[in-house]
Design a binder for these strands. Structure first.
Lengths: 227, 227
DNA sequence: TTGATAATATAATAATACAATATGAATGAT
DNA sequence: ATCATTCATATTGTATTATTATATTATCAA
């Protein structure tokens, strides 16, 4: 983390950074104990209030937990926490959807190259996709359909086995949930796109990379409509 | 945000929730002013410390900003925040270099499609790249070379004008700096690759997308060696 | 008008005190 | 000896108060 060089406004952010560094440098894992608030205060030479502000902020992100007597412990870093907040964020400001869409296309199109290899070696992957698609078909309402659609796209990235991509994709999904909802409001008939999903994975199964990539592009460009 | 029903451990989380609600209910937009810390303290009937912990945490997430005299204001979406968090995530779970490399390839290869369009419309971009490459050539030592190499790759992504990609790329750069240093230790002659850069941007200028993509793949796969 | 300067509002930090609570040890009952 | 209970203690949680830093606004002089 090259956070040190960057200008930092206030102490608590600085401290939060240092606490993160502390975790990394001591290679603490989830559940491990950190120094107490008081010890941190002494270690960094700041008041306990500042330590609290920092730990609170980190706590919000799930980076650490705190409890009386137990003290501070390293939390589980998961995307859900952050996406929850981002979701709020994005409710306030609308980020240019076109850029998000392009980002997503790049990720998915890029992932396909890996997915196609993995699928060739492991037929199980194909049937997993079939499973998800069948849940798409049997969805009772739009909300359920959206959930399964998101699941499908996540599975696609996951199948590439490149976890940084998965993490990034999870973040983007926050935006896309909104898009999906908007789209469905407009186009009413939400089941229309099931075949599109099937075409993609069939192309992958048959080793037709460029075709699959083209299909994904087409599929994703549906989100463009609601302008 | 249906946060109200959920069990909440401590006051500051509760307060943070209420502040979020406040923003929504008054439909505040980015840059709008919130009550002062003191007013919030009175409004919610808690101490100012609690308000601070909450606002700090929200500030940390970019949901609001604070400055003396100006007070609290609603923040704007900042991809940097997101990636900062992701960066921590990556640091904790040390992803194998191979996956990071693949991620990077996907980003850059994907970005090229946009870059090529932008370049066709704006010749200035090409000469900017030429400038960076010439600094590569005149680098005096390995460290300087690395800096300019990173600059080149960043400029490549930046030229796509897709900021989420840029943010994500910056994040990966932390790791790649390490890679680069390792590589250079091994291969000694660090100026060897300048022509590779030139080929890439020339291909882009000539509108040869697939060729440029192939060149990038080749270029990046240099990092694979130091296994 | 312009530029500097002072006043003021507000966040930033600190010190301190006490309350609440989970943990683990000590105690006691069976 | 084993299990449950109690209790002391460490640590976070909350509150109060004071001081400092800083950005905005108002004032005044050139």
């Amino acid at each position: 983390m090259n956070d040190k060089t960057v200008k930092r406004k206030n102490l608590s952010e600085e401290v939060a950074s240092r606490i993160k560094s502390y975790i990394i440098e001591n290679s603490l894992r989830m559940g491990d104990r950190l120094p107490t608030e008081f010890e941190f205060a002494e270690l960094f030479g700041v008041s306990r209030v500042i330590i609290r502000e920092a730990t609170k902020a980190l706590g919000f992100l799930g980076i650490l937990n705190s409890a009386p007597k137990r003290g501070l412990t390293v939390g589980e870093v998961d995307m859900k926490r952050v996406t929850q907040y981002l979701g709020f964020h994005f409710a306030l400001n609308d980020y240019p959807r076109e850029k998000l869409l392009k980002t997503r296309m790049i990720l998915e199109v890029g992932a396909l190259g890996e997915v196609i290899e993995k699928m060739a070696r492991d037929p199980e992957i194909y049937s997993r996709f079939r499973g998800i698609i069948s849940t798409l078909e049997t969805s009772r309402d739009a909300d359920e359909f959206i959930r399964h659609d998101m699941e499908f796209h996540r599975a696609l990235i996951e199948a590439s086995d490149i976890d940084p991509l998965v993490a990034f994709n999870d973040l983007l999904d926050v935006f896309f949930r909104r898009f999906r909802e908007e789209i469905l409001e407009v186009q009413g008939d939400w089941k229309v796109n099931v075949q599109g999903h099937r075409n993609i994975i069939d192309a992958l199964r048959d080793g037709k990379l460029t075709e699959a990539q083209e299909l994904i592009r087409l599929h994703l460009s549906n989100y463009k409509k609601a302008d």
